[in-house]
Simulated assay, not measured.
Amino acid sequence: MPIDRHQATGLYRPWQPPSFDEAENRRDQPPAGAEAARQGVQLPTVEELEALYEQSRREGFAAGHEEGFAAGRAEGLAQGQEEGRRQGHQEGYAKGEAEGRTQGEARARAQYEAQWQQRLALAASLIEGLEHLAERTRETLAEEIAALAVEIARRVLQDELRTSPERIVSLVRRLLEEDGAPHLTIRLHPEDLPLVREALEAELAKGGHRLVADAAIGRGGCLVESDSHVVDATVPTRWRRLVARLWPESANWEEETDVPDDGGEGTP
């Protein structure tokens, strides 16, 4: 009959060295096995002891396996969590770094484009302002140049009329030919009248024209009057027409002097 380890434990006692005093007394006592056999106690056999050992080993193995499994599982779980955390941290860091770099580059690109657009707008505004300034400068210069040219021409003509007063003769002759009407009244500056009468005596007599001295008429100009119309060939009027034809922007220019213009210029 097999016995468990608890029953077997009571059959064995720890060994102690015998006392020399008790050796003689025990010499006459029967052996423990003989006493046990005499009392009817059956000792385990070798096979039973081996079976008991194997059972204890298996139970110890099972208990150790369970404990080791639990400890290994806990340690493996902890290591797995740590490894997973480390790998997750690395992957998350790499992914976060890549996304952060992409977002940073996109943000920097957007900021750069915004700044570039602002600079382009500023440059366009500056260019437009410079163009307007250049246009105003050109207009101002054109007006100043035109005024200067008018003034130079006026002074040249003044000098020409002073040195060549006979130009009034060619003016009156041309007006008579273009008008063609008889009995015209021609108003002249008092100093120009003798020149015209002497040079155009025949033409005046043929057409029945009349010369009238008028101090209000500047030298070099005249007024031609008929019953139906008046031709203003005075210097200021002819000068304004000439300036308006050459420089339309200076059409409002007015002559400041009554010095006659070139009698051969323009058509009244």
Rank of each mutant, 00 (worst) to 15 (best):
residue 216 A to M: 14
residue 11 L to G: 09
residue 56 S to Y: 05
residue 175 L to P: 02
residue 81 Q to K: 12
residue 241 R to K: 11
residue 225 E to A: 15
residue 192 D to T: 04
residue 229 H to W: 01
residue 203 E to F: 01
residue 115 Q to S: 13
residue 145 I to M: 12
residue 162 R to C: 06
residue 121 A to F: 02
residue 114 A to P: 02
residue 93 Y to P: 00
residue 265 E to C: 01
residue 68 G to V: 05
residue 165 P to A: 09
residue 59 E to F: 03
residue 40 G to N: 03
residue 254 E to V: 08
residue 235 V to C: 03
residue 256 E to Q: 15
residue 62 A to C: 06
residue 70 A to N: 02
residue 171 L to H: 12
residue 261 D to Q: 15
residue 244 A to G: 02
residue 58 R to C: 00
residue 49 L to C: 14
residue 133 L to W: 08
residue 4 D to Q: 13
residue 198 E to V: 04
residue 153 A to G: 07
residue 230 V to F: 04
residue 86 R to L: 09
residue 227 D to S: 13
residue 250 S to M: 14
residue 220 G to A: 00
residue 178 E to H: 14
residue 189 H to F: 10
residue 19 S to L: 13
residue 68 G to K: 13
residue 101 R to Q: 03
residue 252 N to I: 04
residue 33 G to M: 07
residue 248 P to S: 14
residue 187 R to Q: 12
residue 81 Q to N: 11
residue 48 E to F: 07
residue 172 V to E: 01
residue 25 N to F: 10
residue 261 D to F: 14
residue 185 T to H: 03
residue 199 A to Q: 10
residue 148 L to E: 02
residue 104 G to K: 00
residue 148 L to W: 03
residue 118 Q to T: 15
residue 236 P to H: 10
residue 126 L to C: 13
residue 4 D to C: 10
residue 101 R to C: 00
residue 248 P to I: 05
residue 46 V to Y: 08
residue 15 W to R: 12
residue 175 L to A: 08
residue 226 S to K: 04
residue 205 A to K: 10
residue 179 D to M: 01
residue 66 E to W: 13
residue 74 A to H: 09
residue 60 G to Y: 01
residue 134 A to M: 05
residue 177 E to R: 15
residue 89 H to W: 12
residue 84 G to V: 03
residue 142 A to E: 12
residue 206 K to Y: 08
residue 36 A to M: 06
residue 34 A to E: 11
residue 122 L to H: 13
residue 204 L to R: 08
residue 225 E to P: 06
residue 203 E to A: 06
residue 228 S to L: 09
residue 80 G to D: 10
residue 180 G to T: 01
residue 251 A to S: 12
residue 123 A to N: 08
residue 19 S to Y: 04
residue 147 A to H: 09
residue 177 E to V: 15
residue 3 I to Q: 05
residue 204 L to V: 02
residue 119 R to S: 12
residue 172 V to L: 04
residue 11 L to M: 15
residue 105 E to K: 07
residue 132 H to Y: 06
residue 78 A to Y: 12
residue 105 E to C: 00
residue 6 H to A: 13
residue 185 T to S: 06
residue 120 L to D: 07
residue 203 E to H: 02
residue 66 E to I: 13
residue 86 R to H: 10
residue 228 S to G: 03
residue 128 E to V: 15
residue 101 R to Y: 01
residue 219 R to Q: 14
residue 50 E to D: 05
residue 253 W to L: 14
residue 18 P to R: 10
residue 160 E to R: 00
residue 46 V to D: 11
residue 133 L to H: 11
residue 264 G to D: 02
residue 198 E to M: 02
residue 16 Q to L: 06
residue 162 R to P: 04
residue 109 R to S: 05
residue 241 R to D: 11
residue 87 Q to W: 03
residue 195 L to I: 14
residue 85 R to I: 13
residue 252 N to R: 10
residue 244 A to F: 00
residue 140 T to D: 08
residue 74 A to N: 03
residue 181 A to R: 15
residue 142 A to H: 08
residue 242 L to R: 09
residue 57 R to F: 06
